[in-house]
């Protein structure tokens, strides 16, 4: 009997996930309830795996920032753009581990206009030392929120502060959607 195709696909997917030491992966729609449920699982998984407290907190913090960025800013939304509460938007988050070092990766579509702004902000962050990041964090905490921000404009700074390497990012053009790009962001913890 030949194995059905979908089983092969599933096996191939699991094999890739195993090879890259994926400990958590989700792709689909993100709502606050889904994020809270995932947060439970991520927290417990890290605890059971014996990850030390400070690393767990950093991972958890970056995970929540990424997931909530998807809720607030993904260009693929189920809820109307003007709705500010109970938003549901599409994206993915992946946590993987390699010899005690963790990577958090998230992806979501974003309008090319927003992409330009994000690129500038992330490039600036990448050029900063840890001391400069902490200083910028302190200043943003006391400043008025950025225009277009649904949070405090502190999300990237919070992730950068907890990351052992500068945040990495990519924008990939999307076929058939010239005004949308796929945004990838990676934090190393």
């Amino acid at each position: 009997m030949t194995t059905p195709l979908f089983v092969n696909d599933q096996l191939a997917f699991c094999e890739i996930a195993r090879k890259h030491h994926v400990i958590f992966y989700y792709v689909g729609y993100f709502s606050q309830n889904i994020v809270a449920a995932m947060a439970d699982a991520v927290k417990l998984k890290l605890e059971v795996s014996g990850v030390n407290g400070p690393t767990r907190r950093k991972l958890f913090s970056s995970f929540v920032e990424m997931a909530q960025n998807i809720i607030h800013y993904s260009a693929d939304a189920l809820t109307p753009a003007e709705q500010a509460n109970n938003e549901i938007r599409h994206g993915s988050v992946c946590i993987s581990e390699n010899e005690g070092q963790y990577s958090l990766l998230c992806a979501n579509p974003i309008s090319t206009q927003v992409a330009e702004d994000l690129r500038q902000r992330l490039e600036t962050l990448r050029g900063m030392t840890m001391d400069e990041i902490k200083q910028a964090y302190k200043e943003s905490l006391r400043a008025d929120p950025l225009e277009g921000s649904k949070g405090a404009g502190l999300g990237f700074l919070t992730m950068a502060r907890d990351s052992r390497e500068p945040l990495e990012f990519e924008f990939w053009p999307m076929e058939q959607q010239p005004d949308v790009a796929m945004f990838y962001l990676k934090a190393s913890i």
Binding site: Q68, L141, R142, K150, G151, A152, L154, T158
Partner: peptide, 12 residues
């Protein structure tokens, strides 16, 4: 035990 970046601002 934990607060996200936008809550930080509110605590402030």
């Amino acid at each position: 035990a934990y607060f996200n970046s936008s809550s930080t601002k509110m605590l402030f």
